[in-house]
Nucleic acid binder design. Structure first.
Lengths: 213, 213, 213, 213
DNA sequence: AATGAATGAGACTTCATTCAT
DNA sequence: GATGAATGAAGTCTCATTCAT
């Protein structure tokens, strides 16, 4: 579905998926280590377990690999996030759980997140748009959870701001790890961040409670 | 002072500073556009207004330019931040003012910030350490303001967390501009972020007020 | 066998040998003309009949070419010298024949010898050691012939000295050609050098004859 | 006198000589270490104790430095050799003394000799001719000593051959030092070489003695 | 489909030489 | 006479991409 933006000379769709997944896995390993620009296509091919010739049977340019990687990363975040969200029973507790899940996920995907921060800009306009849209979707999911789970009204704008804040606080755990992970365990980090997020909604909650009353 | 880590064949220190500033200016322009890796040393020389030979009279390698750029950016942030901080008269209002100043600064330096996010990783161990230390210093300044201006006690850990949050919320305005700057004016963004930051300290403030009483 | 010290990205060993031989041939042509330092890698590639990219598929650095050339030259000398030596029937005549063959060989390889004299010093420690060892081997072969073919005893030291003298008298024909080849035909040169070499062993020979008697 | 082939913008002849001697000294130091091609003009200037600009006041091109160096080396050999030769009282002992002196000189000037072997070829036609002529002169001096000191007649050709042999046996001590200087002390080397040289003239000497009788 | 040898544009960097001060 | 900053041609090497097998 999503990978179809990238042309391949190989017709067998199943094979294309297999090879591209090998490629994504190999590329992420390398990008984590040395970044996109310092990684060569030969290295990607080798790490993926096939030859440079074969690599180019499945992509057209090196940038295609970057796109596949970015796409795969967001795809993974999307899946996991979706699985964590349950809008059937909205509640503040529920909101907290989603945020907690998201933070745990970001801990797992620290290095992938760093790749995104560093390399997305290297994508060409079109593919960049596409990847950024996926990112927006993800923030949108958080935003929806906020709006749905809060007991009181919150402006669209404020909801978006909170969603963005949560979003990057998740990333921050990864890309500022050399500072944060010295001072906090993951659990502490999550607890304090959620604590402050909830605090920042306090007054409104009071008002909301008044409304309820 | 800070540039002295990079060797130059030119002896005249004053001239070195002039040329390096030209170089930093030119490089930032180009890095904003196409990033460090896609910018060639020839382009940097040309944009700086001198020949490739002259460029290499003032640096040893291309990476030196990146270091100079990163160093200059943090230097600028440091100066401006320092100027904005007044610890003589600590008060919550004062804290708000510092945060506001910082956000305005981050608006001005959006693209520089993006460069840092994308390219710092390309620095070699030593220079990276140096640059990251400067970053830590900056967060440290925010942390100190928080501790000093809050009317109540706050744990070292929490102060650090808040400082980090503020720090990256400033960056976020720049590197997520395609989202945020569609929904917020700068003033709105600053207002809402400060609003929520203050809220998140609410309970404590109440306690503090109780103490005062 | 000997070329294996130099890494190649190309796996096919047979092809590596073919290309390297092209390269050695091309490089020797150019080194004769302008020396190692004044010859560019592009020129070597062109003279060898392939592109600069291909050149670097078979070597890592320009110095590798020099090593390959030095190695090939000594390899050739070695083979030819070995073929000329017959230790089954040691005799003074036999010794004279070996020396003669060696001088003829040095005549053929004049320019290669000049290359060695001028450029070996440019090799890095390791490869230089390797090449010099090969040279020692060659002198060792001459030394062995001397010891074996002389009818009388000769000290190890003297044998080594004679071998070294013969060795460089062979070279001298090439690197002092602008003097010697004006005054001597090759045959004359060989005759007179052998004459004097034999004379210098005269007394000993007499002693030897006495012994025999 | 000899340096006058090289143009200088500086008029003061005395100064020119001073500066050029500094230059030659500095350059030899560097050429010993890394050869002509790997030494930069900047390094030569620095080692000589003045600036690159000044260097170019006294020469026109880098090759001029090489010429000055080669010229100076032969000049020195020439002077020393001349001092050692005394044709007033020709005798075999006298010949031996000259050869001995020459070998001692070559021991002192080992590295300079290596420079000559490696770099003369880099000189342009004209200057090369000039330097080679000086070399021929030196061999000529040896030749003359041989002819004069030998008690018997020797053909012009043979005298030249012997002179050339002696000439390069002197060099050999330096450029094959890693072999010879392990096996011989300087004294041993000289003794054995002279021994064999004298032996090679043995028969003739006998004849000569007959004549005398 | 898979391979890997071949290609060459283009990157970084050096360094001999000049010339204004 | 001395200086050293400026220049840019030219060198080495890399690597994305192609294509014959």
């Amino acid at each position: 579905m999503t990978q179809n933006q990238i042309l391949s000379s190989v017709k067998n769709a199943e094979l294309v998926e297999i090879r591209r997944n090998q490629m994504i896995k190999g590329a992420i390993t390398l990008f984590k280590e040395k970044g996109f620009h310092r990684t060569t296509t030969r290295e990607i091919a080798k790490e993926s377990g096939f030859s440079i010739g074969t690599l180019y049977e499945y992509i057209r340019t090196k940038e295609d690999v970057l796109f596949l990687v970015c796409d795969a990363i967001y795809e993974q975040v999307h899946e996991r996030l979706e699985a964590a969200i349950d809008l059937e029973n909205p509640s503040v507790t529920n909101l907290e759980k989603v945020i907690e899940s998201y933070f745990y996920l970001m801990d797992e995907m620290q290095e992938e997140v760093v790749i995104m921060y560093q390399e997305v800009k290297s994508l060409k306009k079109d593919t960049k748009e596409y990847v950024l849209q996926k990112e927006r979707d993800m923030v949108g999911m958080l935003e929806k959870v906020i709006v749905t789970c809060l007991p009181h009204e919150i402006s669209k704008q404020d909801a978006e701001l909170m969603a963005n804040n949560i979003f990057i606080q998740g990333h921050m755990w990864g890309f500022r790890r050399w500072v944060l992970q010295k001072q906090f365990t993951l659990k502490e980090y999550i607890d304090r961040q959620i604590h402050y997020l909830m605090e920042s909604l306090a007054i409104d909650r009071t008002i909301a409670k008044d409304k309820e009353a």
